[in-house]
Design a protein around this nucleic acid. Structure first.
Length: 203
DNA sequence: CGGTTGATCGTCT
DNA sequence: GACGATCAACCGC
């Protein structure tokens, strides 16, 4: 993934982020996670996007320039992280849904409450943030200028391994083929249709 | 297994 | 005042 490409629309950037690495350095240590699953949210035209109803204090970061982190709280208890993409004002973003811990596994496991299985440490958007140690304080941080959370190129991912599917957990436009993941990877979150999902066109 | 549900609170209507 | 871009525990089979 060429980091200059972040200015492209989310649905274009999302597959290219597979294999890229998010790193968080703290006084406790460093955790790095290679991304294995993403979801694209296409700004104002996307009914499932937080930006659909325009800018609010919460989603303001989405409307800014690409390469920043948009962090929000989900269901009162989880943090979820997006990489902002697209041109300034486009409100395009890629939700990071899962990854493989490649550095700092002990620290990641401690943050997750000591759970044993490595492949599950960063499986699911809430778990990913918990393992990486990302919270609201990182909202808006620039991933490219060496802040505490940074995005870097990882090992290239063979295009033949990339799969596309419907988005997870959203109640609107869940059938948009905007979810990208690595075939057969155990760190990819289990697919679940939203309990509230309604068919958006046919039966 | 697979489906269902409780936890928990910021954000928007 | 309702409802999530969630997770894990718990049920019944």
């Amino acid at each position: 993934m060429n980091l200059m490409d972040l200015a492209r629309p989310a649905e274009e950037v999302a597959p290219r982020l597979l294999g890229a690495v998010l790193t968080h350095e703290t006084s406790e240590g460093t955790v790095s996670i290679a991304i294995t699953e993403t979801e694209a949210y296409s700004g104002a035209a996307d009914p499932a996007s937080h930006a659909y109803r325009g800018m609010t204090p919460r989603n303001a970061v989405m409307f800014g320039p690409a390469g920043h982190l948009y962090v929000y709280r989900s269901h009162g208890l989880h943090w979820c992280a997006n990489v902002v993409t697209g041109t300034d004002g486009a409100a395009s973003a890629v939700l990071v849904r899962a990854g493989r811990v490649i550095e700092g596994e002990d620290l990641a496991r401690r943050r997750r409450g000591g759970m044993a299985e490595s492949s599950r440490l960063a499986r699911g958007p809430g778990n990913f943030c918990q393992a990486l140690g990302v919270t609201a304080e990182h909202n808006g941080s620039d991933l490219l200028t060496g802040a505490s959370v940074t995005l870097s190129e990882g090992e290239p991912v063979p295009a033949s391994l990339i799969r596309i599917g419907p988005r997870v957990g959203v109640s609107k436009a869940h059938d948009w083929q905007h979810r990208f993941y690595l075939a057969g990877d155990p760190t990819v979150s289990a697919y679940r249709l939203s309990p509230r999902a309604k068919p958006s066109h046919g039966a």
